[in-house]
Structure formats: structure tokens, C-alpha cells
Design a protein around this nucleic acid. Structure first.
Lengths: 195, 195, 195, 195
DNA sequence: CATGAATGAGCGTTCATTCAT
DNA sequence: CATGAATGAACGCTCATTCAT
């Protein structure tokens, strides 16, 4: 008659990993720390995920899929490409404080982890990125956006969003991330709007 | 008459550190690897820099100062704030391929290093950031830019630049970073221009 | 059916540590040497004891408790304070050759180890010391001992005992430690006896 | 025109070594720390003393000779053996606070240094020890002392003295070492006096 | 006489990973 | 499914010692 729910130790491990990796980075979050945080034995991590990397990719996959769905759902049946971009990005901005720890990993910790960034992209962010590329192309086709290089433009948009998120995280959430995101989207859309 | 110049072993250590940290991250670039790459004993690193962190901050300081100078010099006696922003950012973009490894560290490796990011900012990037904030304020005063939040705007600009640089690095330099930077600056300036 | 009993590796580590620290001092007995002597991996030491210090304090605690018990047991229900002191000290002297290596640590190695001597006292020797202080006070109350400063007197007694033990150890056990201890206790008791 | 006296860097090294070894033990007092404290280069220590051990033995020799002289001088032309023992020991007790750091080395640090204790004795303490053995023999011949084992008795006397000195050092000099020494000598002499 | 750059062996410690139970 | 004892390789770092100058 365990107090803790018996089943999903696997989920507890993932949650513990998110919490610890976000705080201490991939290398700082040791498997023994993660095991302690999750209240399981160290061995169980390897039983489920094989390697530490496996745990990390599992975590990535789980959350990324969730966010992509959220993303697409929010855009809904809106038809105007500009509007869609705006909605998607604001959804993004609203999601960050809600799943702050996960985004801290994506924004702060992922790059220096030593893990293959292309492999990470394949699982994670690239999906959102391609969605935005599509929307910008749509806008150009609709004639509301200038004929910019879509890859560059999409990269710009994500850069703006994530750098503001990073600033928000590093400097103690001392401003409204949502307001900053609105400003960023505004700058972006004006910047690529058809004069 | 030794072939190797004496005394510049310190510099050789710094160069080796840049090369290896850019490739493998702060944790992946072990002191023993750095020593081997530099062709010195491991002990010498600690003789000169005290701790591994010390080597890292030395490296940061050396390059950051160099870049800040380059940055300011490029702007020169240009008086138009918009022009200044454009010049500074294009200089930035041109510097990246030249000192690619150092920028790889700044863009890819620094955040998850576990090192104090505020301390890093104090030494490094913050200087450039403040310079840009100043230029945007100038533009607003000159009446050529909208009254945007300057911190947010500067963050957007750096985000655009660095994400394009990151894309350039990760995807094998398959496009012209300078062109992408021009496009990014164009989007940014149009985005914050007074309508 | 392994020849080595399982699980008592912890004890093997402690025994190896006693052997090596007694011979080479705290710093001379490196963890790798201890591991080799115990026939375990170096990592296991840290698995069980956390730090080298932890191993040392574990060892201290284990033996100290054992000796305090021995000490008190030997005194038994004897009522005469002088007799009690005599018995306790002779027990002490008899224990030394039996657990020679541990006493070598206590007498020869502990002070210069750089470890907190007060912390060590709290775990170890102080218990015996306080026991003797109590007995001397008892003797004074019983009227069989002069009104000496009890702390000084107890210190004298331990000094006599340990210096003879040290001489015994350093000069190759070339005399009977028990005889020397008897002589020492005799000198001490005559010295503080009520004229 | 150096501010520091030019000549005796050798002496400065010895003084620095005494200061640091007394505080941090033989292993804790690294040659680089000693060099810094003495205001000389690390290399000079090895230039003068060959090895770290050499410095230590030099230091030992210098002070030990000084103390033996002091010892003998204090006894002077006193003829009564008991009186001589008393005088010698009180001189010892008075010397300790004066040359506290050196005695801290002798009492606290020397044993765990890993250096050959017999070699140390040959240079240092043994001289005083033999002097006391001689005085006790004298007392027995004079018929004022019991026929005790002189080695054991001398060991007892030194043990009493040094343990009180140790207690004095460890517990913050919270009592008069001279008074304790008087008490110790008193106990000792009563203890070996001819009834 | 004096420096301090340079070394290399070895230190305590960490950690992902394995495996018998 | 779950444990945690056990490992071994590698880590950052220290330090006595050497040696060219």
C-alpha cells in the first residue's frame, strides 16, 4: 500500500529530469540526482531508457509533441496568414511560463549538452519551425508579405521570441513576457509586411 | 634556438581552449584535452589560470574586448542612428565567420555550461547589447524610430542575428550569413521604423 | 558461491584504512591504496563513505565505541576510585597491543592530519578522558586523593600512558608495555595520593 | 636599496615554514605557500634546502639546539637532582608560549608528517630526553628517588608536560600552562620520591 | 644568488553504467 | 519490475621538483 502512485515511475523520472536539467543543465543533472528526485533507484532509469541520452530524448519527444498540437490547435481555422503567425507566437509566449522548466531546457541547456543538435531538431523544435515557414510562405502567396527569404525570416522570428524568453528567464521574470512577445511579433510583421 | 616561441604558451592554451570548447562544449573540452591540443602540460593551465573557469573567463575577456573595439570602430563617425545599427550588425555578421569558433562558444555552448551567465554577460556580450540599446534610443530621439520598448527591441535584434548565425553553423554554412544578416537588419529596421 | 563473503566490503575498507593510515598517516594512506588493500574499486569507498574524511570518522566511531565499552566493563563494580583508575589504565595498556594499528593512528597520526581535532575528540578520546576526570574527582571526594586540579591530573595520566605507548611503538616493542603502564600508574597514584 | 634586509632569505624561509607548518601541518604547508609567506621564489627553497624535507630538518636542528642550550643553562650549577628536574621542566614550560609555533610543530604536527620519527628524534627531542634520564639516574644515586625504570619515568615526565601543552594549545590557552606544569612536576616528583 | 615557467605523477572525487539479486 | 552495490574511466586540480635564464 504505497502512498506514491505505483504505476508511472517512468513519468516521475521524466518529470524529475525536466526539473533538474532545467535548473542544472544536462551535465549537472546527474542520473543519481534524478533518481533521488523521482524517488526511484538509479538502476531504474537505465532499465527504462537505456542511457541517459535516452531519457533526454524521451523527455524531448513527449513535450515537443504536446506543444506542436497546442500550436496547431490555437491557430484553428483562422485563414489570414498574418493573424495565424500572430496567434501561434502568442500561444508560444503563453506556453513558456506554463511549462517554464521545459523551455528553460530548450532555450538554455540544449545547445551545450554535447548531444547532436540535428538529432534534437528532428525530434523537437523543427516541427514548429516548419509550421512557421509554411505560414510565411502562405502570407507571401496571399500577397500580404514581402518576398523575403522564408528560412531567414522564420529564423528571425524564432530568434526574437526565444531571446526575449531567455532575457525573461535570466533576469528574474521582471517584465511581462507576453507584452514583449506582442512587441516582437509586431516588429516582425511590420518588418516583412508588404509596404 | 627552439622552434616554438617561448612564453606564448599562454596564448596557445587560450587558442586550444577556443577550438575545443567550440567543438565539444565547456564540459566536453577537458583540461587534459586542451593541454594536449596546446602542446603543454596540464599543470601549466592551472599555473596560468588557476581554475578551468579562469581560463574560460580569460578567453572571454580577450575576445570580447577585441570585438567591442571592432564594433565601435566600424560605426565610426556615422551620425544617423539607423545607419549605425545597420553597420554595427553587418560588422557583427562579418566577424562571425572570421572568428567562427569563438562565436560558436558564445552562441552554442555558453548557456548550458553551468557558469554564471550574469558574470559572463558582465564580461562579454552585455557591452554590445548596451551599445545597441543606446543606438535605438538615439533613433527614437532623432524621430526616425517608433517608441518601442528599447530593451525588447534590442533583444529582438540580437535574437535575429544569433539565430541566423546558429542556423548557419548548424546547417553547414550552406548560405551566406552576410545576406541573411542584411535581410534580418532590414526586417528589424522596417519593423521599428516610424511609419 | 563466491569465496569472499558479500556485503562486508564496507568492513574490509575500514580494516584496510586502519592498516594503511597507521602505517603511512592520513595523507599517506591514499584512497587508491586503501581500495587496493581492501580489494575493492576506489569508487566504492566514496559510495559508502562519501568523502575520505567520512571513512576516517566511521573508523574512529566504530573503534572508539568498542573501547569505551571495554573500558567501562573492566572497571565493573569496583568501588575504590584508585583501584578503578588502575584497572582502567591497565585495560587501556592491554588493549593497545591488541588493536595496535588503531592506537598508532590515535597516538601518532591524528594530530597532524589536518582534520578538526575537536571533532575527533567529540567522537573519540574525549569519552575516556572524561571518565578518568570523573574517577579522580571521586577519589578526591573519597578523601584518598589530594585536591589537585583534576583536568591537569587527567591530562598527566593520559600523557604518561600515551608517551609510553609511543615509545613502545617507535622503538620496536622492545619492552613490556604493560609493565611500563603499571609503573606509570604507580607513579601517578603515588603522586596524587593524600600524603 | 631593498626595504627587506637583503641577506638572510634563508632565515626568512625557515621562519615562514615554522609559521605555516605550525598552523597547517607539514603537508598543508606547501612550498609555494612558504615561498609566498617568505617573499621569495619557490625555486629558492630548493636551491637552499634541496628538498622540502631538508627545510624541515634545518628548521628542527636550528631550534632544537637553541632549546637544549637554554635547558642546560637554566639548570646551571644546581646540585640537587630533584631541583634540577623541576627547574628544567619549568624552563620548558616557559619556553613553550615564547616559541609557541615551533612547539606546535613538535607536539601536534611532527608525528603524522610521514617523516622518519627516529631521524627526527636524533636531531631534536632526544637530547632533552637523555638529559632528563641522566637527572633521574642522578636522583636515584643520590638516594632521593625510588629505583624506578628511568626510561619509563622520563617518558612519563615528558608525556605529562607535552599533553598539558597540547591541551593548552587545543583549548585556546584558557589556563596557565606554567601552573599546570608546576602541578605536573609536583605529581611526578612525589610519584618517584623515596617514601 | 635568484627567478618562475614548466612538468608529471598522483590526488580525491564524480558519474554513467552494469548486474546479481 | 525494481534495487543499489559495485565498477572503472575520467575529471579538475595540487604540488614537489627541475631547469633555463
Amino acid at each position: 500500500m504505497n502512498v506514491k502512485k505505483p504505476l508511472d515511475k517512468k513519468q516521475r523520472i521524466i518529470d524529475a529530469a525536466i526539473k533538474l536539467i532545467s535548473k542544472k543543465g544536462y551535465h549537472g543533472a546527474t542520473t543519481s540526482l534524478i533518481a533521488k528526485e523521482a524517488g526511484v533507484s538509479q538502476g531504474l532509469i537505465f532499465h527504462y531508457f537505456g542511457k541517459k541520452e535516452g531519457l533526454f530524448f524521451s523527455l524531448l519527444k513527449e513535450k515537443s509533441e504536446m506543444f506542436k498540437e497546442e500550436f496547431e490547435k490555437s491557430v484553428g481555422d483562422e485563414r489570414n496568414a498574418l493573424k495565424k503567425i500572430e496567434i501561434a507566437m502568442l500561444t508560444h509566449a503563453r506556453l513558456i511560463p506554463k511549462e517554464e522548466k521545459f523551455f528553460e531546457i530548450m532555450i538554455k541547456q540544449i545547445r551545450g549538452s554535447g548531444l547532436d543538435i540535428k538529432k534534437i531538431n528532428k525530434i523537437g523544435m523543427l516541427k514548429s519551425y516548419k509550421l512557421i515557414v509554411g505560414l510565411i510562405e502562405e502570407g507571401i502567396e496571399q500577397g500580404v508579405l514581402r518576398k523575403v527569404d522564408v528560412e531567414t525570416a522564420a529564423t528571425c522570428l524564432f530568434g526574437m521570441m526565444e531571446y526575449n524568453a531567455l532575457r525573461w528567464m535570466v533576469f528574474g521574470k521582471s517584465f511581462s513576457l507576453e507584452d514583449a512577445a506582442k512587441e516582437a511579433v509586431d516588429i516582425f510583421l511590420r518588418g516583412i509586411a508588404k509596404s
